[in-house]
Simulated scan of single mutants.
Amino acid sequence: MPGKTCNVVVLLSGTGSNLQALLDSCKPDGPVRICAVISNRADAYGLERAKAAGIATAVLEHQGFTGREAFDTALMALIDGFTPDLVVLAGFMRILSGGFVRHYQGRLLNIHPSLLPKYKGLHTHQRALEAGDGEHGCSVHFVTEELDGGPLVVQAVVAVAAVDTVQSLAARVHHQEHQIYPLAVRWFAEGRLRLGEHGALLDGQPLAASGHLIRP
């Protein structure tokens, strides 16, 4: 998308630390413009971060809907009202329907706190410690209908220390999340990153199965 501002809608359910990292990385004349932040929880602190930055916010609580598809249909209408080029999941604690994922195919990114394909789902830091892993980390990937299973874009590796707790390991992983998510979003906004027929492409070249690997 060279020469064009990339409109980004961020979906979140919690504190919004990754949203803050994205906001901090946005330059006034840069390619990324966060145009809206949407949450399924009215008490999500990420909404306050957005308001402080002068960004439009919206709340769509899922309790009022008969099922996932009905909620996702309403959510798609809300998102599309902001005409996004990219939708970013930043701690959005909802499993999305196939129809939603297909609607945004190739323009829907997620960040996950593990070195995918390891530890899909929840409690990733605890699981890495219990397994005795020497390395842990985080992954940015395109979203597909497979939970935490879409093509990888970039991963950051964190060494696991013998003295690590869930909290200490999580803190170091979060720090890396705040580095790699803005990077991936910028690549997309600059037209460098896209989803090809067989996986993620960076500068027209297929990325490795593990994505672009960063070892801080």
Rank of each mutant, 00 (worst) to 15 (best):
P2L: 13
T5Y: 01
L11Y: 07
G14P: 07
T15L: 02
G16F: 09
S17I: 09
L23N: 03
L23W: 01
C26H: 03
P28I: 11
R33T: 03
V37C: 12
S39M: 10
D43Y: 05
D43K: 13
D43Q: 14
G46P: 05
L47V: 12
A50V: 07
K51W: 00
H62V: 01
H62T: 03
Q63V: 04
R68G: 02
D72V: 10
D72A: 06
L75Y: 09
L78N: 07
G81S: 11
F82V: 00
T83Q: 14
D85W: 10
V88T: 03
M93K: 01
L96Q: 08
G98T: 08
H103K: 11
G106H: 05
G121I: 07
H123G: 01
T124R: 08
R127K: 15
A128G: 11
L129G: 12
E130M: 04
G132A: 09
D133Q: 08
G134D: 13
E135C: 09
S139I: 00
F142W: 14
E145V: 13
D148L: 02
G150C: 10
L152I: 15
L152K: 12
V154E: 09
A161V: 00
L169H: 01
H174R: 12
H178C: 10
I180S: 07
V185C: 05
F188L: 08
R192H: 06
R192C: 02
E197A: 15
A200P: 10
A200S: 14
A200K: 06
L201N: 04
L201K: 05
L202A: 06
L202K: 10
G204A: 06
Q205L: 13
A209W: 12
A209R: 15
S210P: 00
